[in-house]
C-alpha cells in the first residue's frame, strides 16, 4: 500500500481581526490516527477545512503527498474522504441514488458491493432506498460515513464523527476507524474524550492561539 503524507507548515488563519490559530506545524502520515482537540469555536473545523482545501489559510502551506508525489489541489478530492455534521446530501434522492450520483460525478464506477458493505456497517442497509428527507439526524450522520468512504480515500477527515449518534452508532464508528487506520491517514477533530482516545497523537488547537 502506498504512503500518504500530510505536511502542515506555519499555518495561520484569521476571521477578520480575530486570530483563529497561528504557527501550526505538523507532519502526518498514513497508518496513524491524528486528533485535533479544542473547545467549541476554537477553530478545529476551520483547520480541517483548510486541510481539505475547502477554505484558504492566511499564511502557511499544506502539502499532500502520495508516495512522495505531491497531489495538486485540483486532484485532492479523489484522495480525500470528509465527514462533518455540516455536510449535507440531497434530500430528494435516496441514499443509494445520492451515492450513485456522487460516484458518477467523481468519474468512478459505483461500487455496489462496497456500498452494501458500508451500509450494513452503519446499519442503514434496509433504508438504502428511502429518501434522505425521511432520515433522522443520526441516520444522516451514519450515511455521511458511507459518503466519506465509498471512493476508498487515502486521507480521511472526520469532524465530530460521533455527533448525533447513539451508543450503537458510536461503536460502529470506532470499528470503522480501527479498520481505516491500518492503511490510511485519519484525522479526527473532536472535543469528545472517547473520540480522542483512539488517536495516536493529538494537536490541541488552544496551543496555537498566540
Amino acid at each position: 500500500m502506498t504512503k500518504y503524507t500530510l505536511l502542515i507548515g506555519s499555518l495561520e488563519k484569521y476571521f477578520g481581526r480575530r486570530l483563529v490559530f497561528q504557527g501550526v506545524n505538523a507532519s502526518w502520515e498514513s497508518g496513524f490516527v491524528y486528533g485535533i482537540a479544542g473547545s467549541n469555536g476554537s477553530g478545529k473545523s476551520t483547520l480541517v477545512k483548510i486541510i481539505a482545501n475547502l477554505i484558504s489559510s492566511d499564511r502557511g502551506k499544506i502539502i499532500h503527498k502520495e508516495n512522495d508525489k505531491t497531489i495538486s489541489s485540483e486532484q485532492l478530492h479523489n484522495f480525500l474522504g470528509f465527514l462533518s455534521p455540516y455536510l449535507f446530501l440531497y434530500d430528494e434522492f435516496s441514499a443509494e441514488e445520492n451515492l450513485i450520483h456522487f460516484s458518477n460525478i467523481r468519474g468512478i464506477k459505483f461500487n455496489k458491493q462496497l456500498f452494501d458493505e458500508l451500509m450494513n456497517k452503519v446499519n442503514l442497509f434496509d433504508r438504502r432506498s428511502d429518501l434522505v428527507r425521511g432520515y433522522s439526524s443520526g441516520m444522516k450522520q451514519r450515511l455521511r460515513f458511507v459518503f466519506a468512504l465509498l471512493h476508498q480515500p487515502r486521507l480521511i477527515i472526520f469532524d465530530e464523527p460521533t455527533s448525533n449518534l447513539d451508543s450503537e452508532g458510536k461503536e460502529a464508528v470506532y470499528k470503522i476507524i480501527d479498520e481505516q487506520r491500518k492503511t490510511n491517514l485519519l484525522i479526527i477533530a473532536s472535543n469528545d474524550e472517547s473520540d480522542l482516545n483512539v488517536c495516536n497523537e493529538i494537536l490541541n488547537i488552544e496551543d496555537y492561539k498566540k
Binding site: L54, H77, L87, F88, Y90, D91, F102, I105, R106
Partner: peptide, 20 residues
C-alpha cells in the same frame, strides 16, 4: 440553500462543477 455546496466541493474540481 440546501447546504450542499460543500458536498460538491468535496467530489469534483471547480471546472467540472461550472461545466455541469
Amino acid at each position: 440553500e440546501r447546504n450542499t455546496t460543500m458536498t460538491l466541493q468535496l467530489i469534483a474540481a471547480p471546472s467540472t462543477i461550472f461545466s455541469g
